[in-house]
Design a protein around this nucleic acid. Structure first.
Length: 414
RNA sequence: GGAAGCGUGGCCGAGUGGUUGAAGGCGCACGACUCGAAAUCGUGUAUGCAGCAAUGUAUCGGAGGUUCGAAUCCUCUCGCUUCCGCCA
């Protein structure tokens, strides 16, 4: 969430971001609540001060009936005022959750169609295979039985494709470790405070994309980003320990509600997939630089996997609430003759960190909210899809990128 | 799932209901001493909120309650530990 003081002082900027991201939050109501809150808080603090002063006069164990009466009178007022303050604070807090992060100046305005191409790499093939037909024919994937067991958009990976996923994981872990990330595993469920603190929709929301555990305050994670963010919840880190770079591997569960009309074939959009995710906690002044570094790693991986791609800077309307800026790396899909999202990386600035109360103690002793960033290292299902589309012969073998051959006894194809 | 115990500052650890935001120790920072270091000594060392500031206020897992006053008493709740049960 954003800081109410920041909103008060940068109202125009916040309003612009609300508009461009397509939100409908009413700031004037929040600012009004904030004013009420401060006014009432001052009143209550004064009452408490009076009460404390009276109590101090009685600390010798000889209660004075006059003082007790006075204190009781103050208490009666407090009992009346305090719930009012609680109510205002709750309403204010709920309202603050509806305010998306501000967007950086260089974010293109408009919707998805306004995504700005930054650069591209690789030669675009004119023809490719359909990954679902190809993988099904080779008995590498079984969506039918996945549906039988868990419903549509669940699947089994089999044979060499299942092994290829493991090879990609091994390759990916080594790659991110080479770039200074610590590999960690995460809980695959999180409490709802973490989920909402990361800017995801709560259980009550119709737009929620998460699976919730019945009878528990838990949700299945949609990405390792969520438990990785929660790792430092309510903690103050030391400046000298930043940046902290984690790479988390986890299954990702998504209901994919509201994706009607979107491209959903095969492994592109499924309810469960594995993903290796990069995550960084850093000083505010470093986040822009680190965002570019994360993007470079994503490009390095795509190049290692010999997947043609382009990079787009996402338009404001295509950003989630927490992101101030986001890049997508889209691989070239020869079969559909267009680019499709493979990975992305977002600079969430202090948005998630404020909600989850993650701060840094600077060398000079100041305490401030830090910045967080996330980026996909390898989305397994989509990467398998991209590899087949780009490296398989229609009725032949799947050619392996150089970096994966060592996992298959130096075979150059599967 | 059942039973018992425990939850205090970065850590350890005190705390008869009233100068306790909290003793003491460790750690850390700065200073003194030293050619330098160790040791020693001195000083400092939680966070939120309101306020231009002085300052005020809140916080001892969390939420309620009793009281003029709660870290201290009561209720509920969460977490951890141990034992039992179950199970990979």
């Amino acid at each position: 969430m954003l800081d109410i003081n920041f909103i008060r002082e940068n109202q125009a900027l916040v309003e612009k971001s609300i508009r461009e991201k397509g939100y409908q939050t009413d700031l004037s109501k929040l600012l009004e609540l904030d004013q009420q809150r401060r006014k009432l808080l001052q009143k209550i603090d004064k009452l408490r001060q009076d009460r404390n002063e009276i109590s101090a006069q009685m600390k010798n164990g000889k209660p004075d009936s006059d003082l007790v009466a006075k204190a009781k009178e103050i208490k009666a007022q407090l009992v009346k005022q305090e719930p009012a303050l609680d109510a205002i604070e709750k309403e204010l807090n709920d309202g603050l959750k509806q305010v998306p992060n501000i967007i950086f100046d260089d974010v293109p305005l408009g919707g998805e169609e306004s995504n700005l191409e930054i650069r591209k790499w690789g030669e675009l093939k004119a023809e490719g295979v359909d990954h679902l037909d190809y993988a099904t024919k080779r008995n590498w994937v079984d969506f039918e039985r996945g549906a039988k067991v868990a419903g549509s958009k669940f699947y089994y990976l089999k044979g060499e494709l299942a092994l290829l996923e493991q090879a990609l994981i091994q390759y990916g872990i080594q790659k991110v470790m080479d770039h200074g990330f610590e590999f960690i595993t995460v809980p695959d469920v999180v409490s709802t405070r973490i989920l909402e603190g990361c800017g995801f929709n709560p259980r009550s929301s119709a737009q929620s994309d998460e699976y919730f555990v019945e009878g528990e305050d838990l949700a299945l994670i949609a990405t390792a980003e969520i438990p990785l963010t929660g790792y430092y919840m309510d903690e103050i880190l030391n400046e000298k320990d930043l940046p902290v770079r984690f790479a988390g591997l986890s299954p990702c569960f998504r209901k994919e509600a509201g994706t009607y009309g979107k491209y959903t074939r095969g492994l592109f959009r499924v309810h469960q997939f594995n993903k290796l995710e990069m995550y960084v906690f850093c000083l505010p002044e470093e986040s822009k630089k680190i965002h570019e570094q994360i993007l470079e790693i994503e490009e390095e991986i795509a190049q290692d996997l010999e997947l043609p791609y382009h990079i787009v800077s996402n338009a404001a309307g295509d950003l989630g609430a927490p992101a101030a800026k986001k890049y997508d790396l889209e691989f070239w899909s020869p079969i559909s003759q267009k680019y499709r999202e493979l990975t992305s990386c977002s600079n969430c600035t202090d948005f998630q960190a404020r909600s989850l109360n993650i701060r840094v103690r600077r060398e000079d002793g100041r305490v401030e909210t830090l910045h967080t960033l996330n980026g996909t290292a390898i989305p397994l299902a989509r990467t398998l899809m991209a590899l087949i589309e780009n490296h398989a012969e229609p009725d032949g073998k799947l050619k392996l990128p150089l970096v994966l051959r060592k996992y298959f006894n130096e075979e150059n194809e599967l």
